[in-house]
Write a protein that binds this DNA or RNA. Sequence first.
DNA 1: ATAATATGTGACATTAGTGACATTGTGCTA
DNA 2: TAGCACAATGTCACTAATGTCACATATTAT
Lengths: 186, 186
Amino acid sequence: MKTLTSGEIAQYCDVNLRTVIRWLESGKLKGFKLPGRGNNRVLIADFIEFLERHEMPIPEALKPEASPLILIVDDEMPVAKSIQRVARRAGFDTLIATGGFQAGMMLSQHSPRIMTLDLSMPGMDGYSVIEYTRKQESQKGLKIIVISALDDSSLQKAMDLGADASLTKPFSNHDLTQLFEQFMQN
Amino acid sequence: MKTLTSGEIAQYCDVNLRTVIRWLESGKLKGFKLPGRGNNRVLIADFIEFLERHEMPIPEALKPEASPLILIVDDEMPVAKSIQRVARRAGFDTLIATGGFQAGMMLSQHSPRIMTLDLSMPGMDGYSVIEYTRKQESQKGLKIIVISALDDSSLQKAMDLGADASLTKPFSNHDLTQLFEQFMQN
DNA sequence: ATAATATGTGACATTAGTGACATTGTGCTA
DNA sequence: TAGCACAATGTCACTAATGTCACATATTAT
């Protein structure tokens, strides 16, 4: 469990150590003390929460680094493989889930940055997947790319529910690559 | 009886090993020494007591196991609810998942002790759920109870794949309660 | 058994907490 | 704009806790 010392926080905020300690004393910043002389430690999560609350910039080094991983959800293995090839050529690691259950487990366990989702998987409601995922605090950074052969209104519905992009099947490798690269950035 | 080494405690507290040893020497943290060179060991209970005494955060991995939880996977809400009633009456907390994706996310996030699984959910292959779950190291303690209206050979197949028990629909509340209690024990 | 890893120790280097006081920043009024 | 009050932040010196390093030796894994 990585924590920060008062000194490190002072550096991150470009502020005097004395000030950090005052923030801690006043409760503005949550932390705890070591047994010895009471040296302070702050959980990274608490520090980030503090920074966000005060609209302060979050240092790159502290941003929770989601692995540059792409989860491919598609019941048709050939399609999944072809998406995988595109992802690999762009330099990203991949996971393939051919069913909803697998997809849920993988998403929760590996926290990929991007999930491609086939809307029209038999017996699996892609919409509810989007809906449910968007409610999960732990997945707020996830980018969802819907891939489907359905009509535009279906894709639009997916976007309304919270998908970040949509592609119609058959998709162009170029478009997909571009989406991967774009979403990996921010 | 599981104990912690000085190194493990150093990791948990994000502190130098030297410091942990000083805490032990000064009696701030209670522990004992192995006969050899005097390597330190600390009972988990003592460590938690120490953390609480100093208002330090307790690592997830050490928290005493959460309340015994049952994950109910069934697409028909009335059935799910009735299983939930049985579980509650036996004193257990419950979660309900009505789709495979939800089930996968919940299983991974909440690590319940028991999962009840409806084999015949439309578009969701219960067998592959069992198979996939059994491969997951993180879910090795999970008990799977298959509940289905299918014939005996289907249930047998589920058992072969790794289910721990099976019930035919309609099931008797008594049987289900008994299974819950039995599986919660070991 | 043997190799790889983890731990304890002492001496020493760094860093953090504290209190008193100086400095800066902000908002207000004239 | 100048002057003022008040709060927040920075500075400094001192002390004590924590970190670092090298090395011997348990302990664990192969």
